[in-house]
Amino acid sequence: MALTSDRTTLGLTVGFVAVALLGVFVLPDWLLNQILVAFSRALAVVGLLVLWRTGLVSFGHALYFGLGAYTVALLGRNYGIGEVLVTLPAATLASALVGFLLGFIVRRYREIFFAMLNLAFSMVLFGILVKTEALGSTDGFNVEQPTLLGIGTDDAAVKLTALFLGVCAIGWLTAVLVHRYLGSILGSLTTAVRDNEIRVEYLGYSAAEAIHGKYVMSAALTGLGGGFMAISLGQVDPESMVNWTVSGELVFVTILSGPGSVAAPFIGSLIFELLRTYAFELVPYAWQLIVGGTLLLIIFFLPGGVWSVLSRLAGRRGVEP
């Protein structure tokens, strides 16, 4: 089985390198930008995918998305720090820490209650941000120019390419590590916890602790995604980073992608981004109709998400650790 795992790692590596090469040499800037935004969100969706495999859906992960984004933005505004080797780890850690603390509460809940409790927490952060002038209120504020090892650039094209390569690198690393994780003993406690917590307890492992760990992991990844999104957009505000609609988008992309593979969120997220751009151009008043209709279609006819289509086309099974 180690062989299969290596094959997936290889596949992920080839895929991300191919996207990176295409991006640098072939793709137009507007598409690069879309991939950058899509992959930033995909980092968060990978976290939600781990939760979903555990049978849990959160309607409030915008909390961690926003925490990551605002951590990056505030480090720049208050301390002038734009170094991504500082801001992104800080965003990840801040979200992980809050996830760790709230995890003690949410791990007692399942299904609707888990989803709604997360929503409540995220709306509290949203309310605080909107009403706090010092944090930019509804308008938010700009993000410091990012630098890598102290090197920055004013050339928009160079900056875009650099960020694009960065998100590809982090996306690859995340996908490989999470894939390894899902293949570990702890990783098998995703679907196992979803299937039967009593049995997990009676095999000698705490289902609540397993859930807590996965929750922290999802919080960290969502924080990382939010941090990258803040840098990509160059701006943070409550509406586009913390509102419940952001949580809704994350969940939507998770369902769209399907739980089959850690690669799925990157593909699903890109489809979502392209869909949104074209939908706004072609049918300006029907965006919700498209999202809602897609959601219904997937739930009724395609429970494995787009990944199941891709893997069927490729003639192989989804990656099930």
């Binding site: 570990s184 003993i185 990783g187 492992y205």
Partner: peptide, 16 residues
């Protein structure tokens, strides 16, 4: 896997 796992051993691959 669960019976075998102790401490950080839970992060080792399941399928050996």
């Amino acid at each position: 896997g669960i019976a075998d796992a102790h401490g950080l051993g839970v992060l080792l691959p399941l399928r050996v």
